[in-house]
């Protein structure tokens, strides 16, 4: 995935936000294709990495399909951005939470996902959500 240059924006941003580390959670509920939400959410996640925040990603409902192995988007002529999730580690984004109930309801198992994740119950995920300063669902 490529990003336009100068995306970070905002003058004196480093000064204004330096030292503040908040807990950001990005909540992914939508299938990877069919709508643009998953792709554009990933773009925000990548930008957030530049701000040295405590970032986590949650995958639930059809959002768990975003991490499914073996996606082939050629027939629908859209970009397969799923390899980008594997690059998140390089941005120090390693907290990927997947809701167990959503996985099970779709017949998916942890080993069918393209990245290492922490599978947890909806209840546990709700607790993690509660701990956040900023929750962005898109």
């Amino acid at each position: 995935m490529s990003e336009q240059g100068g995306e970070k924006g905002g003058m004196d941003l480093e000064e204004e936000t330096s030292g503040v580390v908040k807990k950001f959670m990005f909540v992914n509920r939508k299938a990877p294709h069919g709508t643009i939400y998953a792709l554009e959410a990933l773009e925000v996640v990548l930008i957030s990495a530049a701000f040295d925040q405590d970032v986590s990603l949650a995958f639930l409902d059809d959002g768990v399909y975003q991490l499914a192995k073996g996606q082939d988007t050629k027939p629908i002529e859209v970009k397969n951005f799923s390899p980008t999730y594997r690059a998140l580690e390089g941005y120090d984004i390693e907290k990927l939470y997947v809701e167990r109930e959503s996985l099970e309801a779709r017949g998916l198992t942890e080993d069918q996902l393209i990245v290492p994740v922490e599978v947890m119950s909806g209840e546990e995920l709700a607790r993690r959500m509660e701990e956040q300063d900023v929750v962005i669902g898109c």
């Binding site: 995306e7 970070k8 905002g10 204004e16 950001f24 925040q53 300063d133 900023v134 962005i136 898109c138």
Partner: peptide, 22 residues
């Protein structure tokens, strides 16, 4: 018009960030 960094910056600086969407 500006970059996504403006969103993250707001998340850091504001007490609350509210999302309106699906």
């Amino acid at each position: 018009i500006s970059g996504l960094g403006q969103l993250v910056e707001s998340g850091i600086q504001a007490d609350r960030l509210v999302v309106f969407g699906d």
